[in-house]
Design a protein around this nucleic acid. Structure first.
Lengths: 337, 337
DNA sequence: TACCGAACTGTGACCGTGCACAGTCTGCCT
DNA sequence: AGGCAGACTGTGCACGGTCACAGTTCGGTA
């Protein structure tokens, strides 16, 4: 009575034998059931049940040339995976959208150079049908590597610089930044600083651009700080900003993580948020609610982003070219600004 | 000059032809290179380079019967995946440990009944070699399903109730809770409350047990609150606790997420943390640093937990039975208590 | 010189599936 | 009666590897 030990997994032949039909008929029942007589179908379905048959994934992939899975590819250093709740939100959406189609997600983190080289191999080895590229940096060569190798790829954010064109799913960065800036202006703030992301990321560049456009004459280059999308970086940027401008009355941080850091730095300096200084974020990640005070932020439509990425990727895999997509954001007003 | 279109991926036969050897020799070079002459090895390696050969994953899996990937299986409702930073920490560690062995992680979220039934199929279809089960609830039948089907499985936390034995990786819950409780007592607190997790999770049960043991005569059942591992639940529990005991001077929350909620509730009630009330957490997740004030918490060795799970799972897959493992925690003192 | 084992190489079978193709059977139309 | 289309079924091959086994070569030894 040993467990499944030694007991070979039933194959399509076993099912065929039990059902009294050929392998071909079983295969047809499994894949849609066209051109199969009702009798045969019933016999096969019964045989599948009685044998406990499960299609062998590897064999099917080999025969069809498709893996039925896609890669969720992170190019940021690993530690961001958990520091930045954004990734988890996208991962969750992608997993859900794919599992509805009986496909799986293979998580690949390519933070070292070595890893990055392996990625093309993974994809080309037929392990995955396509890649959801979660990346932001302009310097990212992975996009070109993948696209150049003819691997179906969809990207988050609009890649900066010269790249092989690939469908992207992004939000209206400039418009979102203008909306938030307008909100801060409407609340009466005039000396508004911005803590933006690295200049080689779309978020870093376009959110600053939108801010600048909306501020118009009120824009003061002295109130611009740029740093990485991390809590400590946000805190450091806030500290630098405070040292330069004592009359600051609001700060627009280009991500919730940075905003949380900025709030901590402000509090350490004895400044109350939002009474003395309004601080707004961007992303509406889980942090925005958890933060103290809860963040006023630009909400990214994470569910729509991830499901659109999956939709587009599957179409591309199926051979139907798709356009890039730009989704709207929504201002989420809480307590911090 | 169209891209990789139509150009068939090179197979092991192409490599063999270019190198002037047989498929067998190429295969031997790829898999360790034993019993291969230096000349042949060099020729094959050169041929692999010039053809850009990459082993087909599906074909290899079919031939060897191994998938070279494992499932990271979440049984909690999906929304916890991103609400609870714990999962991301484990996922990160597992991905890293596996990528060192050229294996990949397939992320599976089984939150609906339907999904849970599919999981066994996934595993049995040979898609993965084994399963890292990230679960906590006693009522979890998935463990028995997987273990019963003979699928190599390793579990986080010690499963409660009657289950088919499976190697687990856990921390010393009772001891950890005693350590934290002792710390709070040593700081002079006497009216210490506890916000613990659901009773059908090891964390919920054993942390309460450790707390009770260490408190001894000071233990007051009135100062025990139980709720889900979520921020709102932590806040609600805190509110209930405050309503019952105005003389509370410390609270031990069984997770950082709950502690953050508890802090928010305390602040809303006009109570300063840690001046009026010390609040400690458990996990040392990313939240602990981000929180305001930063959390004093019991640090779980996430890296060691995830890499140990992977180690053990791979041994089990290889046919070497392994014992369960209990890892130590460490008190991390910050500002909240 | 004959034999032997070690080191290396090639070959055929097989993993489990999908798919193209060739049948078979039936009923209908001319 | 013969032909034909449509519905259904079975078979051989391909997918790209691995592995067991059978050969081959070669230096050493009795």
């Amino acid at each position: 009575m040993d467990t499944a030990e030694g007991r070979r997994r039933p194959t399509i032949r076993d099912v065929a034998a039990v059902a009294g039909v050929s392998r071909g008929t079983v295969s047809r029942v499994i894949n849609g059931g066209h051109w199969v007589s009702p009798d045969a179908r019933i016999a096969v379905e019964e045989a599948i049940r009685s044998t406990g048959y499960t299609a062998n994934h590897a064999a099917r992939s080999l025969a069809t040339g498709r893996a039925n899975s896609i890669a969720f590819l992170l190019t940021e250093p690993q530690h961001l995976l958990f520091a930045d709740p954004t990734f988890a939100l996208l991962l969750r959406g992608a997993t859900e959208a794919l599992s509805r189609r009986s496909m799986t997600v293979v998580l690949i983190v390519a933070d070292s150079e070595q890893e990055r080289r392996n990625v093309e191999h993974y994809a080309r080895a037929g392990h995955v049908d396509g890649v959801l590229l979660i990346s932001s940096h302009e310097s990212d060569t992975l996009l070109d590597t993948l696209a150049g190798a003819g691997i179906p790829t969809v990207c988050t954010g609009i890649p900066l610089g010269e790249h092989i064109p690939v469908p992207t799913v992004s939000v209206d960065e400039v418009g979102s930044a203008r909306t938030m800036t307008r909100y801060l202006l409407d609340r009466g703030h005039r000396r508004i600083g911005i803590i933006t992301g690295p200049n080689d990321t779309p978020g870093g560049r376009f959110r600053l651009q939108g801010f600048r456009e909306e501020m118009g004459d009120l824009f003061d280059p002295d109130l611009v700080e740029q740093d990485r999308y991390e809590k400590d970086a946000g805190a450091a940027a806030m500290t630098r900003l405070l040292a330069r401008a004592s009359d600051l009355d609001a700060v627009f941080a280009a991500s919730d993580v940075m905003a949380v850091g900025a709030i901590a730095a402000a509090k350490r300096a004895g400044i109350r948020v939002p009474e003395d200084l309004a601080i707004a974020g961007f992303d509406n990640s889980g942090l925005a609610e958890t933060s103290e005070p809860p963040l006023t932020t630009m909400g990214q439509p994470w569910d729509r982003i991830s499901s659109a990425m999956v939709d587009i990727l599957l179409d591309v895999i199926a051979g139907h070219p798709r356009e890039s997509l730009v989704l709207p954001t929504a201002l989420v007003i809480r307590d911090s600004a």
